[in-house]
């Protein structure tokens, strides 16, 4: 079968990827960006290959981004979401994957609410598996596009101070960013209310080089990059937070905090944003915000990854 990769078969997280492999994907992303800048935004690289997007959890931007990426590489793309598919009839994930295999899928992109689901898929699928976000575990393509965006603007990753602020505990983005950023030599500070982080050593045992903070104003000192995470409003209902008002005061990127940041400090957000909760519109649309660039780069990164896995 042609799909056998000369490198890795799947990308489920960045934890198993070497710095060199990550760099290679970022290089490829440059070329893909070039393709997307052309008048005809399509190359025949994956012609005849079938990519299936399996989205068991709502997602607009990631799904569209993957669809556009696959189409730009001329692959056949099929997308389905849990709603209306056989999953609702009680079909197991394994059955679904075997069915896709039998239907001739070469690659699957999976988004799932359960951490670890992509590993299960990978065990029952002969082609490539790309994780598009699984529970709280990982979101490697988001981390890759974050890395790409930072490097595009600041020319490097190594030595940068990156602050990730918000609901770290429930964030797959934070975990994948941690692997990617630390492996490429950034200094990462996690900043969150204590209930949305857990004990510090749970994090530093796996990522010994990071810092932990519960005070955003201190954490932002000298930051080169601020990544703001989405706060799910359910967290407040689950009793993890006293109130959204207090959360915003302590952890949101407000106009006042924006003032104190350096003009060069990148502002990032994986989306979708709760404006007025974790980030103010003033910060989201500031000249140093790269939130839209993240979305744009997402397509190129996913093209690079599809290409890289197709070998």
């Amino acid at each position: 079968m042609e799909m056998v990769s000369r490198r890795r078969r799947h990308v489920i997280d960045l934890d198993e990827m070497t710095a060199a492999e990550i760099e290679e994907i970022l290089e490829l992303t440059e070329s893909m960006k070039e393709v997307l800048a052309r008048e005809i935004k399509q190359v025949p690289t994956l012609r005849g290959r079938t990519v299936v997007n399996m989205f068991f959890e709502d997602s607009t931007r990631t799904r569209i981004s993957f669809e556009l990426a696959a189409k730009a590489l001329s692959a056949n793309v099929v997308s389905f979401s849990a709603r209306g598919s056989s999953v609702e009839k009680g079909e197991s994930l394994i059955d679904t994957v075997r069915t896709l295999q039998a239907l001739g899928a070469d690659m699957v992109v999976i988004r799932h609410s359960q951490a670890g689901a992509p590993y299960l898929v990978a065990q029952h699928f002969a082609g490539a598996v790309i994780n598009a976000g699984d529970g709280r575990h990982a979101h490697p393509t988001q981390a890759l596009l974050d890395l790409f965006t930072i490097r595009e603007r600041l020319d490097r990753i190594r030595g940068l101070k990156v602050v990730i602020v918000g609901d770290i505990l429930h964030s797959r983005v934070a975990r994948s960013d941690l692997w990617g950023l630390t492996r490429l030599g950034a200094h990462v500070t996690l900043c969150a209310p204590p209930t949305l982080l857990g004990p510090a050593h749970f994090w530093t045992a796996t990522w010994p080089q990071i810092s932990i903070s519960h005070r955003l104003d201190e954490a932002l000192e000298g930051a080169d990059v601020v990544m703001v995470l989405r706060l799910q409003k359910e967290r407040m209902h689950a009793g993890l937070l006293p109130s959204l008002r207090e959360y915003s005061r302590a952890y949101a990127l407000t106009p006042e905090r924006l003032e104190r940041l350096g003009a060069e400090t990148l502002i990032m957000h994986p989306g979708p944003m709760n404006e007025g909760v974790e980030i103010w519109p003033e910060a989201a649309t500031a000249p140093n915000s790269v939130i839209e660039a993240q979305v744009t780069n997402g397509v190129a990164v996913r093209m690079a990854l599809l290409y890289w896995l197709a070998g």
Partner: peptide, 10 residues
């Protein structure tokens, strides 16, 4: 609940 669950997001 510990280091591994934190890493794996469970």
């Amino acid at each position: 609940e510990g280091i591994v669950s934190t890493r794996l997001g469970l």
